[in-house]
Design a protein around this nucleic acid. Structure first.
Lengths: 139, 139
DNA sequence: AGGACGCTCACGTCGCGTGAGGGTGC
DNA sequence: GGCACCCTCACGCGACGTGAGCGTCC
């Protein structure tokens, strides 16, 4: 088993050490092992979990608390496939609605981004045309 | 000329009154007129400006200071088309590079979102298959 | 003239950044 | 035993939320 110290994890994930400790403090990531109760020691699995967390955070733009709820929901579903803790049809229904809403939200954001990119491209066009008046070569 | 009070603007734009005042305080939106130096009175143009601000904020996810710089850049280019304040070819070059980078950044975000949506759809699939085991009708 | 809405402090919160002061490990 | 890294307070900051206490409008 390979162990990573906090600075390694910071470099790998791009989070700061402070952020890693903070996320642990508020229960967003599980407390890793410790060396003699002192230094934090992370495993590859820990790092993978953190990676997923980062992706969700970036995409969803939730508060960390909402993010927490969302992740626990996801885990619930994934664990549901295994023998135990089956969910009721009603719960499944609800979760499905929730997921659909998330998807719609993200699609809305993407639509806004597309429009924004168009605007930026328009701006670039304007600039290009003005450059052609003063220069002869494009780069 | 139609005048809107702050609560109207809040309802129209979706920002809170506090946020509107705060954005004014840090110079992100221009101070609107006042009734006898007391109540803030916004015009349709003010509201339009605020709308654009919100769009940029949501899409870019910058700090408010960076956002401010970005917006002034945009305005610079848009005003450049008019008779005065021409920009040097070098400045134009730089701005163009800047815009290209923004576009790339947004495209990266969109790519992440696409992947995330796929994951969510996978989750939904799992749920669907489990529902088919216990129910007969889909909604 | 009363109630809905506006104003300005000013303190609280979240998500970290940034030392200070001290311990750990090879 | 150095030196690089770790730890835990604890205070600061940006971007607002949330009253308190008071004025304004129709």
């Amino acid at each position: 088993m390979k162990w990573y110290k906090i600075d390694d994890v910071a470099k790998i994930t791009g989070l700061t050490k402070r952020t890693l400790r903070y996320y642990e403090e508020i229960g967003l990531i599980k407390p890793p092992e410790r060396s003699n109760g002192k230094f934090r020691l992370y495993t590859d699995e820990d790092i993978e979990q953190i990676r997923k967390l980062i992706l969700a955070r970036e995409v969803l733009g939730f508060s960390l608390q909402e993010l927490q709820e969302f992740l626990s929901l996801k885990e619930k579903v994934e664990r549901h496939s295994e023998e135990y803790n089956r969910l009721s049809p009603y719960e499944l229904q609800e979760i499905d609605q929730n997921l659909k809403q998330q998807i719609r939200m993200i699609e809305t954001k993407m639509e806004r981004m597309r429009k924004f990119i168009e605007e930026l491209e328009d701006l670039r066009q304007k600039i290009q045309s003005h450059q052609n008046l003063t220069e002869k070569e494009d780069v």
